[in-house]
Design a protein around this nucleic acid. Sequence first.
DNA 1: TCTAGCTATAGAGCTTTTTTATCGGCCCGT
DNA 2: ACGGGCCGATAAAAAAGCTCTATAGCTAGA
Lengths: 300, 300
Amino acid sequence: MLLAQVEGFLEVARRGNVSRAAEAMFVTQPTLTARLHALERELGEPLFARTRRGMRLTDAGRAFLPYAERAIRAVRDGRQALADARSASAGRLVLGAAPAVSTYVLPAILQRFAAAYPRVEVAVRTGHSEDVLQMLLREEVQLAMVRAMRNPDIESIPLYEEGLVLVVPPGHPFAQRSRVGIADVASERLIFFDRTSSYYELTQTFFLSLGVTPREVMELDNIESAKKMVQRRLGIALLPRTAVAGELAAKTLTQVTVTDAPALSQKIVVIRRRDQGRPSGTVAAFLNLLKESDPAAVAS
Amino acid sequence: MLLAQVEGFLEVARRGNVSRAAEAMFVTQPTLTARLHALERELGEPLFARTRRGMRLTDAGRAFLPYAERAIRAVRDGRQALADARSASAGRLVLGAAPAVSTYVLPAILQRFAAAYPRVEVAVRTGHSEDVLQMLLREEVQLAMVRAMRNPDIESIPLYEEGLVLVVPPGHPFAQRSRVGIADVASERLIFFDRTSSYYELTQTFFLSLGVTPREVMELDNIESAKKMVQRRLGIALLPRTAVAGELAAKTLTQVTVTDAPALSQKIVVIRRRDQGRPSGTVAAFLNLLKESDPAAVAS
DNA sequence: TCTAGCTATAGAGCTTTTTTATCGGCCCGT
DNA sequence: ACGGGCCGATAAAAAAGCTCTATAGCTAGA
């Protein structure tokens, strides 16, 4: 059965006249007649009664009519849905993100994305990078913004380098000193967050590699709490720069540079299943938006 | 766009494998590949990502999928609806009927029809023959059972001859007499029903042609009331045989034959729009059922 | 009776589709 | 490392179907 036959059926049903319907469809009348015959032959039932005045639906035709309309409408809507998806003017985008990205980087990006594509429905799922990777592999998310990871089934696009910076409360002795060494840091109470996250492992390795073992520590399970603890002078912390950008600007936290230690950072990337072909629709739109902007700069 | 392409898309989407899908659809693999390519070209977007393992839906494909399913389902359901209509195993039948037919003849017929085609939804619209004819011409009903009428746009199939019989209450003097003449009838109070119906005209013409003018009359607007009036000895009436079959059998009314007057009757036919082609589906089923039975015999 | 308007039909040409056969890549077991 | 097996893509020939022009057949209305 050809869609063209069903469309012809509808057009003739509407107009009751093959010639006019043919004209409206930009085909000749015999063509349309043939389509109708083919459709009737396939369905095994006359859909029209031929009269001197034109074509009238038979009972069978009347019975078939709503289904024909539904089918044509479905195809038309499907085309529209694809067009929407292509222009990203509508559709759905499901993102995965690591906690620090989700909280401090994504909001500003999503604000711009939502402004550019107001009809796109966006969903964000937050989790540790490893968990988000699994979501991606299970196709629960289309894109994920996580720390750089190695996996043969994904491709990564570098997003930004997220530095970990040492923050202290305003008025802390470190803030006045010209030089702060790693040994000085080790003697302070250190505040960590989320033992199960990659940050924890990263910072621990960092200290160990410098031969430093911070003794007094406090551990929180989220960055926001860690910041509060530092502000209440319960310790100092190594936190993602994006997570403290706001506090540094408001001078409610002060950044301290450790002179005798290398910069500590990790790469944040956006990852995507490698077997999904070229990005399209909302995904492509989001990636373009990322490409045009510096995610780390918009952290709030 | 070809339905076959959409079906191919669905089958491949389900199986993730062109070769298997092609096999299931009884075509060769290159055919199906070509269909997919044609569909993708028409939609301007890859629907599948080709991998070593087979075909995976792209985001675009996923967006299109529900519409494709809807379209195919609509066509499938449409086919089924036609098949149902053909076998009259389901569907809808809208009948028109004159009051006497609707009340006394149709119930028994519909009982049998409903037994034979339980899934057919039946609707009856009752009205005077002329009104029902208009309903038929406006296609508000598919068939109508009315008195024989002349109209170029309809075709009629004779159903039965409906005789008008003179009924009197049990114990009425006429019931005992061997001969009742038209003059005797004229001296009785006569009960008519529904001045606007064809019965009224018919009976009036009948008396006039015999040179009789019934003086005392009573007029009801429905047969059932007329029967009750006769039973309460308020008069005698000329009523359709089918309408009094039950009372005659139960001996709550008595039939009297007028010896010096011709039999009075009118033809009941089933009519149908002439431009509807050959009857099909529920209509054909109903007509067949009529053909096989004697409607007048089943009057209750 | 003629004309206008309707659909059906015939036959040629062309486009599209389908098929067979084959290619090129990749995975996996030996 | 290599070969068999499975994947989809491609080429080319054959087949099928579609669309066109031209025309027929029919009826209603002038």
